[in-house]
């Protein structure tokens, strides 16, 4: 038998805060009658630079060909399927925490992006999407001229 157990690691009060936050979320979602995370919502981070936006999505076990990316105006949409764990037909599930199934997420970016110049790649289970900002929309530095005192 294989059982999850308690760990002994350095104390971190932020872990407790995060746990509390998660437990509160679960409490409220159960009050509202929502199923607890049965739908697939992969977590993502968005970063902005002067020349591009970078969207990073947590998608462990997913391949690039299983993901579909599209843009409409400022909006990026990521669709795909989380494959879930696979085993032979005679395998019996003892614990199932990983979420599987189709997912779709949209991100509204604060500026236009050039979809045709976008670059997407997988690195250790993270999907990293770089969306360049059109040249004419990028911020330009304005030269401040020094006026010589006469």
């Amino acid at each position: 038998m294989l059982m999850p157990a308690m760990s002994a690691f350095g104390f971190d009060p932020f872990v407790q805060l995060r746990r509390l936050e998660r437990d509160m979320d679960r409490l409220f979602s159960s009050v509202l009658g929502e199923e607890e995370a049965e739908f697939a919502v992969p977590a993502l981070n968005v970063y902005l630079g002067d020349d591009k936006a970078r969207v990073v999505v947590r998608l462990p076990g997913v391949q690039l060909e299983d993901v579909d990316l599209s843009t409409t105006g400022n909006r990026l949409t990521i669709r795909g399927e989380l494959p879930g764990s696979t085993a032979r037909d005679d395998a019996v599930w003892l614990r199932r925490e990983r979420i599987s199934g189709p997912f779709s997420r949209s991100v509204d970016l604060p500026f236009r992006v050039e979809a045709e110049k976008a670059d997407a790649r997988f690195e250790n289970g993270l999907l990293i999407i770089d969306l360049p900002r059109p040249e004419e929309d990028r911020p330009h530095r304005i030269e401040i001229k020094k006026i010589e005192a006469k």
Binding site: L2, F9, D12, A91
Partner: peptide
């Protein structure tokens, strides 16, 4: 006991 920053999700079959 103190805990790590996060616990990753796991499946057991």
């Amino acid at each position: 006991t103190g805990m790590p920053l996060f616990e990753p999700r796991a499946d057991i079959m």
